[in-house]
Amino acid sequence: MRVVIGEDEALMRGGLTLVLEQAGFEIVGAAEDGDDLVRKALAHAPDLLVTDIRMPPSHTDEGLRAALEVRAARPDIAVLVLSQHLQRRYASELLEQRSAGIGYLLKQRVANVEAFVADVRRICAGGTVLDPEVVSTLLRRARRDDDPLHRLTPRQLEVLGLMAEGRSNAAIAERLTISEKAVVKHASHIYDELELPVSGDDHRRVLAVVRYLAV
């Protein structure tokens, strides 16, 4: 797996490189600003692009803009955006184009190396991974009384959240210590309540959920 990293902070870039290389990824390029990142990603055509949001020269959102630009040009390159602060809008912008191979995580998730590497592999495999923090923000978001989410039970909301994080039914079952069958039952109930089309495709299901959440 070939990776291009966008991170202006040398220490963090080193840590990230170390973690990914130890997990067997090959770092083919590292950029310190948005333009350089786009250039290197398009030149190396890696399997994965990992980038910070805030980078030089303006220190605003060039990392995210670079990732979106690369995605638009090469939809086959998986993208993982790391950030210190998560925003619903960024999640929707990332998922708007195509949901396959998208990740949006807090930077500190890198420290839990095993979980992080597992997430990275899922993203590379075309999965969608949203940070639990984003998901909980989305779920906690205050809604009007007529909002369909109010019709879900707390357990169903939990399942919905884990689905948004990109977990498989098996993983959800394990996390909630319920049977996989129960998870499937919850999921179909959620689709019914939210009037979402049933689909066997794992990440399209996630996309539908997240799109709904991100409105």
């Binding site: 220490l11 963090m12 840590g15 170390l18 973690v19 930077k107 500190q108 890198v110 420290a111 190396v113």
Partner: peptide, 15 residues
């Protein structure tokens, strides 16, 4: 930029 990165790297070390 600075402190957060150092803490994350420390956490990677602890991990």
């Amino acid at each position: 930029d600075g402190l957060q990165a150092r803490l994350v790297v420390l956490a990677i070390g602890a991990n």
